[in-house]
Amino acid sequence: MSVRALVRTFSELCITVGALIVLFVVYVLFWTGVKADHAMDSQIDALQGQWARGEISAGAGAGDEPAGTPPAEPAPYQDGKPFAVMYIPRFGFTWNKPVLQGTGTDVLKKGLGHYANTAQLGQKGNFSVAGHRRTYGDPFKDFPKLRPGDPVVLTDGTTWFTYRVDRRPYRTLPGDIGVIDPVPRKSGFDGPGRYLTLTTCEPEWGHSHRLIVWAHLDATQPVEAGKPEALRR
């Protein structure tokens, strides 16, 4: 093999590796967002379709059940399936993301993830949700902008839940599991209640720390009563 062929092959290899890296950056920064936005939209569509059908079937089935049946405990969420939509006006008026059960990598590609062992939406305890800060649609990109008093609104198709942020984002270590306890450690909450915890990564593109926001349930209203105050323009 002549020197010329060697140099040429080496140059071609360098160009190939460079093109690969550029393509990978495009994939991470742009394509994951396209895919995630599409996936999140279809999750929300699925949820709304389910709610629309659910209301019909609940209305039709109500007559068949014996009167005076006590209201059932909320059914456990299905793993990997959406069950609520979250709105955070601070992240933009049109910001809304589906909340899915579980915090696995595949789940977080399709929306926000609910920690499986934490309380259900609106129930006593700590409803905890994790989301990407960067890549996959950047759902929690503006996480550090959250301030005390900011509303975090969720709906499960029958009820609007308005949580209020209690303090500025709190930075902690990845193993600090106490932040999603029923009464989260270091949150300033001093007794049992209906809390919400959001977690994402910190720094923005790293994984050395986590950023935490705590909120408490401020108000609930049935969906028939219209959008809560926090979502009205």
Partner: peptide, 13 residues
């Protein structure tokens, strides 16, 4: 992509 750190958003690993 999962080998990069952008996926670590939870506190329970």
């Amino acid at each position: 992509e999962p080998l990069l750190p952008f996926n670590d958003v939870t506190v329970d690993g």
